[in-house]
Design a protein around this nucleic acid. Structure first.
Lengths: 210, 210
DNA sequence: ACTTTTTTATTGAATGTTCAATCAATAAAA
DNA sequence: TTTTATTGATTGAACATTCAATAAAAAAGT
């Protein structure tokens, strides 16, 4: 079977199989043999392409976080408005994007969050992602309110987004993306001064940077 | 050394040691030998008192959830007001109680949350706790607003509380309980109709049950 | 008061299992 | 014929659990 150029195909297969295995039996029981069987290949291939189990886990987490980042970035790029509210809504929607919310991804995300507390390489990835979410939110909020108030708003909205993920990952039915998005948007409505229009028409840019 | 009545003492020692071990090296590397060494006893004693590692893990999770429940219940019992806002504040404060927020407890809580997705006995404990938090919040909110609105408020506040825990568990410095409580209370202020006094003086009982 | 017996608590080496990683062998494609 | 891709049996380490042995304390007997 060996054709040339299998590496990217196998890597993708194995990353996907890793998420499926973690979704099925949890990180603790996601052995290399189970992952390999899920992907339809032999166990040895994992060390060949990822240098070992750790490498595969890191690659899997990296993919989830990259997908999340891309999902948010795409929605922000598509905005016709520079209004802070529009950006904040794009960040919320990106975080509850379809591709991010399927059962396997949500459970894998939580499993990695938990184990990143004691694995330096995973912790680094997690921190980069956390700080980006907070920084993005904080920057937009601070355009609309005093700095300290904006930071608190960012902390609170970040907590709510992660909390909705967390609670969604626990339920068997998986996260209700529609409901989560609605709850986060309602919260945003409460946070923002009501002086701004909330529909989707392009708004004139604001420059209220404190 | 053997005196009579060691069982409750050893059980407590081992549960505490389990949290310390999970705090140190994570659930995956919290072996029975490490936990036993941390507690200053031998490995065999764990099977003797808990029937095995699983039994110890379940007992540890049960203790964390019981402490949390007791912390909320105590604050609600101490209330002189029957006002929904007072109860909601008590629930928030109880969730960010000192005893719940120390590093070992927060990390252990998250580790169990993650592994409860695939261990039926832990999942049961988790569900009981989740439903209680939601039911308590929902009941109080529904006294102040229409039913569907109250349920959404409960879902959102529950997500924020868990999200603040989640983010607090990740940081090395541990959860900033003061800040978390403040953010959750600010959110509560935004959710509640401003017709009600927000200070701590006893308020006349409300009967706005929808 | 003092010995003996019974009960309770604890140890730690031995056991068997599970797992990740390795690598020589194999086979398809180039 | 050489290169690239893959296999799967083997190896060694780590682990939870077990259990016979030990020892302190308590109880019973003298």
């Amino acid at each position: 079977m060996p054709k040339v150029g299998m590496e990217p195909i196998r890597r993708q297969q194995l990353i996907k199989a890793t998420m499926a295995a973690i979704d099925d039996v949890g990180l603790a029981d996601a052995t290399v043999m189970r992952i390999a069987r899920q992907a339809g290949v032999s166990a040895g291939i994992i060390s060949h392409y990822f240098g070992g189990k750790d490498g595969l886990m890191e690659a899997t987490m990296r993919q989830i976080l990259n997908d999340l980042r891309a999902s948010v970035a795409a929605r922000r790029r598509a905005l016709s408005s520079r209004a802070p509210r529009a950006h904040l809504e794009a960040i919320i929607d990106g975080n509850f994007d379809r591709s991010q919310v399927t059962g396997p991804v949500a459970k894998t995300w939580l499993a990695f969050w938990s184990s990143s507390m004691h694995q330096p390489r995973l912790q680094r990835l997690q921190n980069v992602n956390d700080r980006r979410l907070y920084a993005n939110l904080s920057h937009q909020f601070c355009r609309l309110m005093p700095r300290e108030e904006g930071r608190d708003a960012a902390r609170a909205l970040a907590a709510m987004i992660d909390g909705l993920w967390l609670r969604g990952a626990l339920t068997q039915e998986g996260l209700d993306a529609e409901q989560a998005r609605r709850l986060a948007r309602d919260y945003l409505d409460q946070l923002l001064p009501s002086t701004e229009a909330s529909d989707s028409r392009p708004c004139p840019p604001l420059h209220a940077e404190s």
